[in-house]
C-alpha cells in the first residue's frame, strides 16, 4: 500500500506525520521524501545513506557536422529550448522538457541526447525504515523528473509512505499520482482551510481516497471540521498544539519515539487507512 502524506499549505506538519508514522508501524516500511525542493525527513529519520546517485534528464546534443539547418527541431519544440541561428544550433537546456521531439524529427540524425543534472537521489535506512529522498540542485527549476526517480524506488509490496511537496501544481501531482491513499495534514486556521480545499480538489482530480489529520488541533477555529463534515472527509487523527511536541520537532526528534501513547495512535491510524482502502500493508 502506498500512502501519500500531503498538504496544500507548507508547514502544517506533513514531515512530522510522515516520519512519526514511519517509526510507529511494525514490519517493513519505506519512506520516500518527494519534497525534493526542501527535503526534511532525513533530519528526523537520520538514515545512514548507502547510495547516492545523480539524477539527470535527457536534453539534445547537436552534431553540427550532420546538421543542414533545416530548422525542423526548432519548429517542433514547444518550449523554445532549441533555435537555429545561421549555421549553428543553440540549445537552452534549462527550458527543455525532455520530450525527445527534436531528436525524433531531425531528418539528418544530427541530434542525440545527453543527461542534464537535476539533483541527487540518496537511499539508506535507519531502525527498520528504508529511506529514499531526492535533493533538487539549488537553482534548478525542473523537479518532477527527480520526484519520479524517487517514486520509481517504490517497493512492489509492503508499506510505502510518501512525503509530498506542498501546493497543488505539477510537483505534488507527480508525488501523489497512482498512490492508494492521500493523508492530508492541515491546521484549523483560515490559511489551513483555504489550502486544504485546494489540496482536496487536486486529490479529487486524481481520484484517490483521502482522509484528514488535523495538527495543532486546538488553535484557530472550527471551520476545517465543518468543511470536513460537509465534504464527507474522515478526520483520522488530531494532534493538539503542545509546546513539548513543537520543541521536540525543533530539535529533529520524533515524538512517537518519546511518547509510546502517540506511537499507538499513529498505528491505529494506519489500521483505519487499511480498512478504508481494503488494503493491508502488504497489498498493492
Amino acid at each position: 500500500m502506498i500512502i501519500s502524506i500531503a498538504s496544500g499549505k507548507g508547514g502544517t506538519g506533513k514531515t512530522t506525520v510522515a516520519t512519526n508514522l514511519a517509526v510507529s508501524v511494525d514490519g517493513p516500511v519505506q519512506l520516500l521524501d518527494c519534497d525534493v525542493e526542501e527535503p526534511n525527513a532525513h533530519l528526523f529519520i537520520r538514515p545512514s545513506i548507502r547510495e547516492t546517485k545523480t539524477v539527470t534528464t535527457p536534453v539534445p546534443e547537436i552534431d553540427l557536422e550532420k546538421c543542414n539547418q533545416c530548422k525542423k527541431c526548432a519548429e517542433i519544440c514547444r518550449f523554445r529550448a532549441i533555435a537555429v541561428l545561421g549555421d549553428t544550433v543553440l540549445t537552452f537546456p534549462e527550458l527543455c522538457h525532455s520530450c525527445g521531439g527534436c531528436m525524433a524529427v531531425c531528418p539528418e540524425g544530427a541530434i542525440t541526447e545527453k543527461g542534464r543534472e537535476l539533483g541527487v537521489l540518496e537511499a539508506g535506512a535507519m531502525n527498520g525504515v528504508s529511506f529514499v529522498h531526492g535533493r533538487l540542485r539549488v537553482g534548478e527549476a525542473m523537479s518532477p523528473p527527480l520526484i519520479r526517480a524517487v517514486r520509481d524506488r517504490t517497493w512492489a509490496d509492503g508499506l510505502t509512505l510518501i512525503d509530498a511537496p506542498p501546493g497543488t501544481s505539477c510537483p505534488v501531482i507527480a508525488a501523489m499520482k497512482d498512490t492508494d491513499f492521500v493523508l492530508l495534514v492541515t491546521e484549523p486556521t483560515p490559511f489551513g482551510l483555504h489550502d486544504l480545499q485546494l489540496a482536496v480538489e487536486a486529490v479529487k482530480i486524481l481520484d484517490i481516497p483521502m482522509g484528514l489529520m488535523i495538527n495543532r488541533a486546538d488553535v484557530g477555529d472550527d471551520h476545517v471540521r465543518d468543511y470536513a463534515r460537509a465534504e464527507g472527509l474522515p478526520i483520522l487523527m488530531e494532534i493538539p498544539f503542545d509546546r513539548q511536541i513543537a520543541e521536540s520537532y525543533s530539535r529533529g526528534d520524533m515524538f512517537a519515539l518519546a511518547f509510546p501513547e502517540w506511537k499507538a495512535r499513529f498505528r491505529e491510524m494506519i489500521e483505519k487507512i487499511e480498512t478504508m482502502t481494503g488494503k493491508g500493508a502488504g497489498a498493492q
Partner: peptide
Amino acid sequence: EPTVSGIHDMARAIEL
C-alpha cells in the same frame, strides 16, 4: 524558524 527543518531550508534559500 529555529527548527532543524527551518535551518536546512533557509540555507537552501540563501544559496538560491
